[in-house]
Amino acid sequence: MSITQAFTFEAAHHLPHVPETHRCRRLHGHSYRVELTLAGEVDPHTGFVVDFFDVEAVFAPVLAQLDHYLLNDISGLENPTAENIALWIFRKVSPDLPQLTAVKVFETPMCWAEYRA
């Protein structure tokens, strides 16, 4: 069984390793959406793979690091592509959510990156 919980945050970034003419080299912002997917057996007593409130509690401090910040200023996100953000989130969250199997980061409703363990 798998479950997914979504979160949103607002942040700015620029991509320092793209050509000067690339529009993402300039500072800009996104309304990001993050989806955390967890998988495992359903606990017969609770009926949960993981309680959504537990997922929210684990992710809350990570979300606070991202929301309304310049992502380039965050250690480990100096090149904050959607791919790097997804991997960064996975590394931050997975120690406390061992059932985490995927992190999906949407920069827009039409483009995203997904890291799968």
Rank of each mutant, 00 (worst) to 15 (best):
P95H: 03
N79S: 09
H17L: 15
D67M: 01
R91D: 08
W112S: 14
T108F: 01
T101S: 12
P44M: 01
E114Q: 12
R91M: 02
Y69R: 15
D73W: 05
E56C: 00
D73F: 08
T81D: 12
V58R: 00
I3D: 07
L66C: 02
D96K: 10
G29M: 06
L77M: 06
D67S: 04
G76R: 05
A60Q: 15
L77V: 11
V105N: 05
V34K: 03
T8G: 00
H17K: 15
G47E: 07
T46I: 06
L38T: 09
A117D: 05
P109H: 04
L87T: 02
W88T: 06
V55I: 14
P19T: 10
S75I: 06
P80R: 15
E41K: 11
E107C: 05
L27C: 12
P16Y: 05
R23S: 13
H45T: 15
R91H: 08
E20D: 13
N79P: 01
P80T: 13
Y32T: 00
F7G: 02
V34W: 03
A6Q: 14
A117M: 03
L87V: 10
E41I: 07
F9I: 08
F90Y: 13
K104R: 14
N72Y: 12
A117E: 11
F90K: 11
E114Y: 04
V50H: 00
H45F: 14
A11G: 09
A39W: 01
V50C: 06
D96A: 06
L27T: 11
Y69G: 03
E114D: 05
R25V: 10
G29S: 05
D43W: 01
T21A: 07
P98Y: 06
V42L: 14
F106D: 13
M1Y: 07
L63T: 01
T21H: 11
T108I: 01
V50Q: 09
